[in-house]
């Protein structure tokens, strides 16, 4: 039997900071404090270890190695002094999965109403994966999926089920 459509691994140890602010006003300060360019709508910018994802017109998600979390949070707090802004550590509220493999897009296509093969290289798409909310973007050789930790077991189950060996969508 063929291999699974994608290798699915749960990623632990990432730090995540939810940022809410008026991005037109505070965008430059956020870009400077995080060391990343401000992402355009529905995209994500990265420098290799850190990423800054666009979540909504007034919300960003900073993803970084867990060890840098406290320092980054402090820098952001300092940069956004006086702004009406939210800087919240949401690391423990999220479940992160990496789907790596030639047919990872096929597995995601079974769960979300989105054509992930057409996702731009720096695209970030918030959608649903089966019945739970998820944000999905490209990583080397596949996709990264983040969802709520409270539905993380469910997300792991549906992802593994969608990636079962021999279930590619192309005609066989």
């Amino acid at each position: 039997m063929a291999d699974a459509l994608a290798t699915i691994t749960r990623v632990e140890g990432l730090g995540m900071i939810a940022l809410r602010a008026d991005l037109a006003r505070a965008g430059d300060a956020i870009a400077e404090a995080t060391g990343l360019a401000l992402p355009a709508a529905t995209s994500i910018t990265t420098d290799g270890s850190r990423s800054l994802g666009w979540m909504s017109p007034d919300e960003l998600l900073l993803i970084l190695p867990g060890a840098e979390l406290a320092e980054a949070q402090q820098a952001l707090n300092q940069a956004l002094t006086g702004e009406h802004a939210l800087i919240a550590d949401v690391s423990d509220a999220r479940a992160v999965f990496d789907l790596v493999g030639a047919h990872a897009a096929d597995a995601l296509a079974k769960l979300a109403p989105v054509d992930f093969a057409a996702l731009p290289a720096d695209g970030l798409r918030r959608t649903r994966a089966a019945q739970t909310a998820a944000a999905i973007w490209r990583i080397d050789g596949g996709y990264r999926v983040i969802g709520f930790r409270s539905t993380g077991d469910y997300l792991a189950t549906v992802l593994n089920n969608a990636a079962l060996a021999g279930t590619t969508l192309a005609a066989r």
């Binding site: 709508a41 529905t42 649903r128």
Partner: peptide, 11 residues
Amino acid sequence: PYCGVKAEETE
């Protein structure tokens, strides 16, 4: 109209 995503009804 906020993010420009073509969202399907279930989203």
